[in-house]
Design a protein around this nucleic acid. Structure first.
Length: 503
RNA sequence: GACCGGGUAGCUCAGUCGGUAGAGCAACGGACUUUUAAUCCGUUGGUCCUGGGUUCGAGUCCCAGCCCGGUCACCA
């Protein structure tokens, strides 16, 4: 039998569950009031007994958590119990808890959930310990947990069974609590600055606001094709027209592209729009947000990033796009022949392509990886920015910035284009030059119509939350900061006599 | 999509030249009232990812496929 080994292990636990139930205890537990977090319990100030002295009876405590280790010693057992704040040792003596509770102790397995009442104190080896006086069974683990020392290391199982990863690898839990802190901090900063949080459609008839292939779905009653949004941008700007002067949205966007350590098909963006601001307002906001997040999760502004160290100490440099290109590509961007020659050197296709698109690829190939510390790249070639206001002094330059850290694009922001006629023209010209799905500018008649009502001049910002979490929590893959990353569904187990169907 | 690496007990991993499938942890039985990955004695546990092929004999070699990871490409 394929699953014999697992079946035996689970049968043993099922038998224990039965015995627990027969003893009159609900093996699935119930409400358990008044317990305190393990971290709070550990924080209780308790003088260590002096050498050879009988310790004073400590305070009464009540905790709850999962049994991670069990060290039996005859008529005494030591447990390591863990909740989401930490671990603590529990001492259970047969004489101390009585025969009835002891019968339960003999049925406890690693992975079970247990509530413990007891007194806090130190063992003779000096370990802070809950000396149990009563036990409350809170849940039977019917399947064995991973190995107690190594935890779960198989990447695939860590992603597919995140619940096991979370309780068996403390670092994983710490990471996701850190992500939550980062997102909460973003909301706090935004609210403090007078932004309101809104929700806009994730199913859209026109997937605009970014350049990406969308997921397609269908609404039955309306019998229409809809797309999962690739960005909330065009809806949020409609709200600016409506007079919501400072809006933001933290939400999932979906892009039907490849999967990589930096790409998950669904990911979280925060977009924000501020009426009467510009891209410089957005740079200030970006720096404030990320610095506040760093302070919230701790660890300081100088942070480990893999083998590297990144200094987030503000203010971050603001470098012009074309200046960086001159410096790192070593060419004059005005000299198109030189641009093409250099582009070919680094493997960028030049034949029949727009000048600014070639420059954009050249920039990616030569500059982006060279920017290690956080750096705002500002003032992009206008042709690659169809939603961005042009500089009054030079219409070939768009008022856009991107924030880079170690070659990773963390944020993208503009002074928003609010001229409806120019917007319509840019939509049309972009559409003419490119395949629609490759274009950032999909014609959206209603959006142009919105702009005709006068959208206030504004700054707009998008920040990739997942990538920020990777950088701040020092995780090399986006899958380490997404709770349930997209995986290929597992083939269904072959039914008896049938072979698994192939697609 | 291309290339590289991986898939062996519930978990973490060995497996030599092709010759009976291994360890630790977990589990089970026993000893133990202050352990620290407790210890000690004993026992159980396998679709070696799948399917072909070579061979007297394949976890091992060959071919094809599946899944995962990494790098690159596309993208944020």
């Amino acid at each position: 039998m394929a699953e014999e080994s697992r079946d035996v292990l689970e049968a043993v636990r099922a038998e224990k569950l039965k015995k627990i139930a027969e003893s009159g205890i609900d093996p699935w537990g119930h409400r358990f009031d008044g317990h305190q977090a393990v971290a709070a319990t550990r924080a209780i100030e308790l003088p260590k007994p002096a050498e050879g002295q009988t310790p004073e009876p400590g305070p009464t405590v009540r905790i709850a958590g999962r049994i991670m280790l069990k060290r039996g010693q005859g008529k005494v057992v030591f447990l390591d119990v863990r909740d989401w704040t930490g671990r603590i040792q529990v001492f259970i003596g047969k004489k101390q808890v009585g025969d009835e509770a002891w019968a339960l102790v003999e049925l406890l397995d690693l992975g079970d959930l247990l509530g413990v009442d007891g007194t806090l104190g130190y063992t003779r080896t000096g370990e802070l310990t809950v000396f149990a006086t009563a036990l409350t069974f809170l849940g039977k683990s019917l399947t064995p947990p991973p190995e107690k020392w190594h935890g779960l290391t198989d990447q695939e199982i860590r992603y597919r069974r995140r619940y096991v990863d979370l309780f068996s690898n403390p670092e994983s839990l710490r990471t996701f609590l850190g992500r939550s802190t980062i997102v909460r901090t973003f909301r706090e900063v935004m609210h403090r600055r007078g932004f309101v949080e809104v929700e806009t459609p994730t199913m859209q008839a026109i997937a605009g606001g970014a350049a990406a292939k969308p997921f397609v779905t269908h609404h039955n009653a309306l019998d229409v094709e809809l797309f999962l949004r690739i960005a909330p941008e065009l809806y949020l700007k409609r709200l600016l027209v409506g007079g919501m002067e400072r809006v933001f949205e933290i939400g999932r966007v979906y892009r039907n592209e490849g999967i990589s350590p930096k790409h998950n098909p669904e990911f979280t963006m925060m977009e924000a729009y501020q009426a009467y601001g510009d891209y410089h307002s957005m740079m200030d906001l970006t720096e404030s947000l990320i610095c506040a997040a760093i302070e919230a999760i701790g660890g300081g502004f100088i942070r480990a990033w893999g083998e590297k160290t990144i200094d987030f100490t503000p203010p971050w440099p603001r470098r012009r796009y074309l200046d960086l290109l001159r410096q790192y590509a070593g060419i004059d961007p005005e000299d198109f022949d030189a641009v093409k020659a250099r582009a070919r050197d680094v493997g960028v296709e030049t034949e029949g392509r727009d000048r600014d698109v070639i420059i954009s690829d050249l920039f990616e190939a030569t500059v982006e990886d060279a920017l290690i510390g956080p750096a705002f790249v500002i003032d992009y070639p206008a042709a690659i920015c169809p939603l961005t206001k042009r500089k009054a002094s030079d219409p070939r330059i768009a008022e856009r910035f991107e924030l880079f850290v170690d070659g990773i694009e963390l944020a993208n922001a503009y002074t928003e284009l609010n001229d409806p006629r120019l917007q319509e023209e840019l939509f049309r010209s972009q559409l003419a030059g490119q395949k629609e799905e490759d274009s950032m500018a999909k014609m959206d008649e209603d959006f142009v119509q919105a702009l005709k009502n006068a959208m206030p001049p504004a700054g707009g910002l998008g920040i990739g939350i997942d990538r920020l979490c990777m950088l701040l929590l020092n995780k090399p893959s986006i899958r380490d900061v997404v709770l349930f990353p997209l995986m290929r569904p597992q083939a269904p187990r072959a039914a008896e006599g049938e072979e698994a169907e192939e697609g």
